[in-house]
């Protein structure tokens, strides 16, 4: 247990990826970062670069074109990593379950650690999901929490 593992749990960096989402969950993920909810006080920073990230926040159902991009981004994030599926569509396909271009939830393509329910998921629920993921991450890197 070194300083890297400890800081990974103390200040996890987030990569947000939007599949074919309706935007509802995306703006709620962004709203988490703004003054009312302000997850930055927990050390969470939104990153554009997958190689900087520890936690991947995925919104929206997977379609036939984003599947490849999603897998690609996932593989670029260094281990250990956590994946949070935000919203009903990211978890199961949700309201789009019978659309022809939809493969289903994010777990059809990459392993998911935490599912956040809601359509659109509320910021409180998203923060809750992130905290759950951090508990899981601390177990994975061997930092007791």
């Amino acid at each position: 247990m070194g300083i890297i593992q400890t800081s990974q749990v103390k200040s996890p960096w987030i990569l947000h990826f939007c599949n074919s989402s309706c935007n509802g969950c995306d703006i709620e993920v962004l709203a988490c970062l703004t003054p009312l909810y302000d997850v930055e006080r927990f050390g969470l920073v939104n990153m554009g670069n997958p190689k900087h990230a520890d936690v991947m926040v995925v919104t929206g159902p997977v379609n036939y074109r984003t599947a490849r991009v999603l897998k690609n981004l996932y593989n670029q994030i260094p281990d250990p990593k956590m994946v949070i599926a935000v919203g009903a569509c990211a978890s199961t396909g949700g309201v789009f379950h019978n659309c022809y271009n939809i493969m289903g939830g994010v777990d059809k393509v990459i392993p998911v650690d935490v599912y956040v329910p809601g359509c659109a998921a509320r910021p409180e629920a998203i923060i809750d999901g992130v905290v759950l993921a951090l508990q899981k991450l601390s177990k994975a890197v061997g930092v007791a929490k």
Partner: peptide, 24 residues
């Protein structure tokens, strides 16, 4: 443009089974 390589072909045509995935 909109469809991927693995998407169903001509999904909006009425008699195309690929268009209606499951449904109600």
């Amino acid at each position: 443009m909109l469809l991927g390589k693995d998407s169903p072909v001509k999904p909006m045509v009425k008699d195309n089974a690929a268009g209606g995935k499951g449904g109600e």
